[in-house]
């Protein structure tokens, strides 16, 4: 098995784990981390698969993932701003209709 495929499969597992976490977890901060795992898993799949068995890295996939990483941190930061406003206004760390811990 080539390293690229190994990391791509790991990325796929992270994607599935993150998705399950996003569906099951209730705390907004935990959900945000699960969502970030989905993103990181996708990045690993993209870069891992773009690497050919001869080991040559693909600059196109890397460039696209680089923009993805920066957009992900901006989205995470924005989500945190919204989350903390929500907490300040309602005192809750979950969405409406869900029982607090």
């Amino acid at each position: 098995m080539s390293p690229g495929l190994l990391y791509a499969l790991a990325g796929m597992l992270l994607f599935v784990m993150g998705l399950a976490g996003f569906a099951l977890l209730r705390h907004l901060l935990r959900r945000l981390m699960a969502f970030n795992l989905v993103g990181s898993g996708t990045f690993l799949v993209l870069v891992g698969l773009a690497q050919r068995p001869d080991g040559e890295p693909d600059p196109v996939a890397q460039a696209l993932v680089l923009t993805g990483i920066v957009v992900a941190i901006a989205a995470t930061a924005l989500a945190l701003v919204l989350m903390r406003r929500w907490f300040d206004l309602t005192g809750r760390t979950r969405l409406d209709g869900e029982a607090d811990e």
């Binding site: 901060l29 690497q51 890397q62 460039a63 920066v70 995470t76 930061a77």
Partner: peptide, 22 residues
């Protein structure tokens, strides 16, 4: 994975900024 650009960005963002924010 031979992606030093991504490693640099991830180290600064994933470890630094995300850590501080979270």
């Amino acid at each position: 994975l031979h992606a030093p650009d991504l490693a640099l960005a991830e180290a600064a963002i994933g470890a630094g900024l995300t850590g501080v924010l979270l």
